[in-house]
Write a protein that binds this DNA or RNA. Structure first.
Lengths: 232, 232
DNA sequence: GGTTGTTTGAATCACTTGTTTGATGCGGTT
DNA sequence: AACCGCATCAAACAAGTGATTCAAACAACC
């Protein structure tokens, strides 16, 4: 599963286009990147996109699925791991959040720039493509979210379920925004000794989201269901 | 100030274009809306945009400034009010957050759909135009952010300053994401008795952000300055 | 009246968008 | 050899992009 050593020599072009698309989408968003931008970056012909992916939307779906599905699987795996470890009691909030966010760092094996682009791409997916994702991604995202919502409402019984859904939504916003603009932020908060690395940022985000999720809020309006229905 | 009864009869077109642009930008983002989309919606000619605003970017700047500057002023006013009220002690976190977020609801006098669009537009500004805003907006935003950062670090002395900057950034993300997708969210969390109104959502966001800002985090790496340098 | 400066409108500019075409080269099979 | 399926390419497609032109309409002033 290492993406080299094709059988029929041919479609390495496909991979180059996929990679270039991911990079440009991450940097400038889905709408702002043209097929010519992509194929130029990939040293390929414009027609290659429509040949391999049918359309620009087909390409977008492919790129999203290619990166999103492993993330969802890894989330599920980490949630399994957590529930195994804490079989006796409840899984702590920070562990659930970690299972949700860490895959951004671990699914991509490349460190440095590759991971940077990957994170920004994930942020773009969440904020620009939260709806209209490919079906398979939609389904697995649905499963993950349902599970996380249940686990969270177990450890946070004092938080009303509708409030919890909103707070989870706030977490998404914080995440998406950070993933997209982290590179820019790191430049701004230039400590002399070094920028915070991914692990530090992840930890800060988990701390923040944990605090927000379990805040001693007071707003109780009407109660209703609706858990695990939004996905990104 | 009611948008009718112009002096020189002429530039009501300008206002119509401005309004249509705001609406479409709010709904679909800055990049995805063309001048023709706007002028069609505004029942105006394409040339009107370049005549009144010089270019598409000029129009975008105008729309942003037109809505953003009053928000900044109102934020400043509310911060003044808060510092007057709490002259003896420190201004509580939730009051600072309220001063930051409430202008989204109060600056626009129209309730209902107008406010809805206004909020989404603000979200777009934060997430798609955080950089490259018009100069005047940039400056007043800088002042607001510097002030809020100082006030927050006063009430939250236990939170290291660099951590605080990151947490404030997380708050922005949560806000921006919510402003853009609130309409969609309200549909999802459909309680039988009624959707949460703006005031409820605002309160939930403040609760969440307060919890996140004042979380008992533990990550302390290197310390450095950099407060009040990012703006949206 | 005539002249001014401002605002509209249809037409057009050069350019980019996503998509399609038809020709070309290639390796593998019969 | 001829044939096939597949991948690539330059070229063109129609539609849409932001921007510009120039004539007409307009109000206001001398």
């Amino acid at each position: 599963m290492d993406d080299h050593g094709q059988v029929k020599g041919g479609d390495e072009t496909r991979e180059r286009v996929l990679l270039a698309a991911q990079k440009l989408f991450a940097e400038r968003g889905f709408e702002s990147v043209s097929l010519r931008n992509i194929t130029t970056e990939a040293l390929a012909n414009v027609a290659a996109v429509n040949y391999h992916f049918g359309s620009k939307d087909g390409l977008i779906d492919e790129v999203i699925g290619h990166h999103m599905i492993p993330v969802m699987k890894e989330r599920m795996r980490l949630l399994d791991e957590a529930e195994n470890k804490y079989r006796i009691g409840l899984v702590p909030v920070e562990v659930i959040l970690d299972a949700f966010m860490r895959p951004f760092l671990t699914v991509i094996q490349d460190g440095g720039e590759g991971r940077d682009l990957f994170c920004r791409f994930m942020g773009r997916c969440m904020s620009e493509r939260g709806d209209r994702m490919p079906d398979e991604v939609m389904r697995s995202a649905q499963r993950v979210m349902k599970r996380i919502t249940v686990m969270l409402s177990d450890v946070l019984p004092d938080v009303e379920s509708e409030v919890l859904v909103w707070r989870l939504h706030f977490c998404f916003g914080a995440m998406a925004h950070t993933l997209i603009h982290e590179a820019g932020l790191k430049v701004l908060s230039k400590g002399q000794s070094g920028d915070p690395d991914f692990e530090t940022t992840l930890q800060r985000m988990i701390d923040y989201c944990k605090g927000g999720l379990s805040a001693g809020g007071s707003v109780l309006t009407d109660r209703s269901g609706g858990q695990g229905e939004f996905l990104f």
